[in-house]
Simulated scan of single mutants.
Amino acid sequence: MQNSMKADHGSAAMGSSGRPGPFEYLKKHYFLYLMLAPALILTLIFKYGPMYGAVIAFKDFSPIKGILGSEWVGFKHFYKFLSSPNFEVIFMNTLKLSLYGLLLSFPIPILLALMLNQVRRAGVKKNIQLFLYAPNFISVVVVVGMLFIFLSPTGPINQLVVWMTGEPLMFMSRPEYFRWIYILSDIWTGAGWSSIIYVAALANVDPELHNAASLDGANLFQRIRNIDLPTIRPIMAIVFILAAGGIMSIGFEKAYLMQTAMNLPTSEIIPTYVYKIGLQSGDYAYSAAVGLFNAVINVILLVTVNFIVKKLNEGEGLY
């Protein structure tokens, strides 16, 4: 009887499949969980803790009354934003800027990594990488300042335009140029740094595969298509899903710094609108509602894109 009870207790600890149960595993590897604890605590405090503040999106928030004392108004602020005359313009500006930026900037790091992988001389490769990675460390304020200088009516680019057409172009004032300037400058500053993950993955490709393919008569493009691209395909899927999930999460700093009175029809996006309404006008509840609406759209896009990529990529997705 006692032996059977011990056996039952042992099987419970080991689990029905013969593997260690969760408590047994936790007891055995407690030190690993202790190492994880600081990161988990910081995440709970600084990521999940502030989520409580999102409740002001459903209240008529007053700093004097506080979050708990403010009157509950439900979806009033959401209706206000969705029915505002600026909603369609702001939403479409945000969506277009994010979508065009994703479609144009996503392939560039992959192409850079594939080209860097073909450079065999280590010294030359390091110099090229330094040249490509350096723009990532330039401050956004400095980048926008450089854009205003280079694209000004008397700047070097307009001097070339005047030489060709006879009159300068108002790049920073014309709404139709805003998205292209924003996206191309983003590609310049971020493409090289974003290629690091692909370069690291390609470094793990066995050179013997390329040698064998060359002996079989495969040219460079065939080797890239059949050896290099399949190697980085899982990383491409994850990076694309994460980028698509944050498609509405454009940082307001660069867009706000690039805004002028003339390009507002295309430069006014949700983050800049939230900044102006929340911090400049002091309407915290309404700005929180707009920000929460933006976050919900991001979650929907993340789940949708992950589902589509898993279907197209043989079950490989973010989760």
Rank of each mutant, 00 (worst) to 15 (best):
N3P: 01
S4P: 00
S4A: 13
M5R: 09
D8P: 00
G10A: 11
M14L: 15
P22K: 13
P22G: 14
M35W: 08
A37N: 02
A39L: 14
A39C: 10
L40W: 02
I41L: 14
T43S: 12
G49W: 01
S62T: 06
I64P: 03
K65T: 09
S70G: 04
F78T: 10
L82G: 07
V89W: 04
I90D: 02
L95E: 05
S105F: 06
L116Y: 02
F137E: 00
F137S: 10
V142R: 02
V144I: 11
T154C: 02
T154M: 07
Q159F: 11
W163A: 14
L169C: 07
M172H: 05
R174P: 04
P175Q: 08
R179F: 14
I187K: 04
A191E: 07
I197Q: 06
A203S: 14
V205K: 07
L209V: 10
L209D: 05
H210D: 13
N211K: 12
A212Q: 12
A212T: 06
D216F: 10
N226I: 07
I232N: 03
R233P: 00
P234G: 08
F240C: 10
I247E: 00
G251A: 07
E268S: 12
E268M: 15
E268L: 11
Y273T: 05
I277N: 13
G278L: 11
G282Q: 08
A285F: 07
V296Q: 12
I297C: 10
V303M: 14
L312F: 11
L318W: 01
L318K: 00
L318E: 07
